[in-house]
């Protein structure tokens, strides 16, 4: 039989944490939004558009954070064969993909007014796009198998390979960019960040990270439920078969009784 991660243990640990974590997330994002939209100065060069930074940078951070998390889960699944590691990696992928996509979209919305273009083949943008492809590949691979456990294992291997590849891609893309483009005017990190901007930035990064853990816990529960359902369905099928057998027996008995009665 498959070794299941013990759902009861996971629930016992996360049940008391979850409401607090959700509250902290809401609080962090709410105060972060207040600072980001009202209480932070406008940039002398970029004007109000600098406010996009407060979601763009945290989204980029989350995209990378989630990938590192997936790779660590992949390594843990490879070394200790702990089923929960596979489930965590699987649950992380959609969150990471969402944030990576958000990073690209908000970056575009920031780039249009500032650089005059939605998209530049800049090293950072390109490597972020490749990261999104890696996420999509992982999600497609994990869902391509009839047996979800086989999918998760293949996915863990892929996450690990991708993690090795990400620095290489980053490095090659950096080089590719400097070869083809003259010293870039494009600067994603903008001017050195003022303390008054650090506050909303830090709040939003923390808030997004907490949001990730809330959704992660929920998604792991979802995954555990689905595994349980599959196990029940399998045992149910066996039961049904044995039920049919016993029904036949019953009919047989009934037939005997009917014969015996008269």
């Amino acid at each position: 039989m498959h070794r299941f991660a013990k759902p009861s243990v996971f629930l016992k640990f996360t049940d008391p944490v979850l409401p607090w974590l959700a509250g902290v997330t809401a609080l962090l994002i709410a105060t972060g939004l207040y600072f980001a939209l009202f209480a932070s100065p406008i940039d002398y060069q970029q004007g109000d558009t600098v406010r996009i930074m407060y979601i763009h940078v945290p989204a980029a951070w989350m995209g990378l954070f989630c990938y590192v998390g997936m790779a660590i889960c992949g390594a843990m699944s490879l070394i200790w064969k702990h089923p929960l590691a596979d489930i965590c990696a699987r649950a992380t992928a959609p969150i990471g993909a969402t944030f990576t996509a958000l990073c690209l979209i908000t970056g575009s919305l920031w780039g249009e007014p500032m650089w005059g273009t939605w998209w530049v083949w800049d090293a950072r943008l390109t490597s972020m796009l490749i990261l999104l492809f890696l996420y999509l590949g992982y999600i497609a691979l994990v869902n391509a198998f009839d047996d979800p456990e086989r999918g998760s294992k293949a996915g863990s291997a892929l996450a690990l390979i991708g993690a090795v590849n990400v620095p290489i891609v980053k490095f090659s893309v950096d080089w590719w960019n400097t070869l083809h483009q003259p010293a870039s005017i494009v600067r994603m990190d903008g001017p050195s960040v003022d303390p008054s901007m650090q506050v909303p930035l830090a709040l939003m990064i923390l808030g997004f990270t907490c949001y990730y853990f809330v959704v992660l816990i929920l998604r792991v529960r979802l995954e555990l439920n689905e595994r349980r359902i599959r196990a029940l369905q399998l045992s149910g099928m066996f039961d049904q078969r044995s039920d049919q057998d016993s029904n036949n027996e019953q009919n047989y008995d009934a037939g005997h009784n009917a014969e015996a009665k008269p």
Binding site: I130, F133, L134, L136, G137, A140, L141, A144, F145, D146, R150, G151, A154, L158, I161, G162, N165, I168, V169, F171, S172, V173
Partner: peptide
Amino acid sequence: GARRGGVLVSLLVLPLYIP
């Protein structure tokens, strides 16, 4: 052993081919 393996392999391998 995956469904639609042919399309899938390109999605997996292409990002790794970029360097």
